[in-house]
Design a binder for these strands. Structure first.
Lengths: 197, 197
DNA sequence: TCCGGGCTAGAACGAGCGCTCTATCCATTC
DNA sequence: GAATGGATAGAGCGCTCGTTCTAGCCCGGA
């Protein structure tokens, strides 16, 4: 929210959040040392603890929210690209594959790594990750509902679409290949189409 | 492999590998301190570096292989439970949901957390994780091929089946709910059936 | 009885962790 | 020009990390 790039200079707080999101996207929470984070953000420890009295964990929650919105934007872009929801879902996988390869297989889902790492350990972060997943499902469900899919089928399909995107994105990263995402796109399109009202 | 429970006492090496696999399943690689690992395995640091001169990383590779086989066993159990591959895949999701809830949502995929954390950082571990995914895909593909599915469709379906299982398992963990897995089961069964030769 | 190698044992090391703390800067306000 | 308070700055704290190292245990074969 607020200015997200229109300003030539971002405030210190915003730089911290974006840098944290990027580093956590790559290595998760524990693999992101505060000192490196602060250095890459062009800030200092003093600034971090000024804006986030709760320390690294509070910053991480903000970073997950930022990644949530970032991924949601890409999701919306793909979903809006085609009127038909089946084709739209396939368009999303294309966007994901493109972005992933362009980043040399580094920029996967900005939430997954942190989510897995914090399950049963850091409830605040786990909750933030769960909210992100729910948010993305909501976007997919809205597209299906707008296309006339019945409520229950739309919600269930949204769950599987998001989960399959997550799984395919992870495998694409680990194997450094677009294939898992592109195959997922074809299969998800077929699945969504098979429920077409 | 070798004895996996028949012996009343497992050797120190085996205890280290199993404990590492379990701890990495829960928190990944970096969140698993060697000292805790050694303590829970009933071993000592000396033993660890005796059996694994490469240290924590070498042990982690062995642990990933163990988790690979463990998950493969569950996969085989589900796939063999039903002759029809669509029903078989759904059976797998049932087994996964059961095991996950029984562990209070802790025992997710033994590889995913480590996989995401080591992408682009620890090539040895990343490669071990990639091998595990390929192995599981192979098992699913074999089931489909045995049921008469054409080569290419079987391989592609296997990719999506494994990816969707991974994604659904992760979401089930984070949200502490069987729903993602059960919904994935229904959808995967429908998808697999839609290609039935 | 002695030996020797597979294995166990845990204290100690240097590096890096998240965080605290005091000092300072600087735009805004009287 | 002085005072104010948000923001910046980074040295240093206590702690834990993975690893190293030396010493000793156990037990089958000579």
């Amino acid at each position: 929210m607020a200015a997200t790039g229109t300003k030539t200079e971002l405030g210190t707080r915003e730089r911290l959040v974006r840098t944290a999101s990027r580093l956590m996207q790559h290595g998760g929470y524990e693999n992101t040392p505060v000192k490196q984070l602060v250095r890459e953000a062009g800030a200092t420890l003093g600034s971090l603890y000024h804006f986030f009295p709760g320390g690294k964990q509070e910053l991480a929650v903000a970073a997950i929210h930022f990644g949530d919105e970032e991924f949601a934007a890409l999701l919306r872009a793909g979903l809006d690209a085609r009127p038909d929801p089946a084709e739209a879902v396939e368009a999303v996988t294309g966007l994901l594959a493109e972005a992933l390869e362009a980043s040399d297989w580094r920029d996967g889902c900005p939430v997954t790594a942190t989510a897995l790492e914090t399950v049963g350990r850091l409830p605040d972060l786990q909750a933030a990750c769960a909210r992100a997943f729910a948010h993305w499902q909501e976007l997919v469900a809205a597209k299906l509902l707008a296309s006339g899919y019945p409520e229950q089928e739309a919600r269930d399909l949204a769950i599987t679409v998001v989960n399959t995107l997550e799984g395919a994105e992870m495998t694409a990263q680990v194997t450094q290949s677009r294939t898992p995402l592109l195959v997922a796109g074809r299969h998800l399109a077929r699945l969504v189409a098979s429920y077409r009202p």
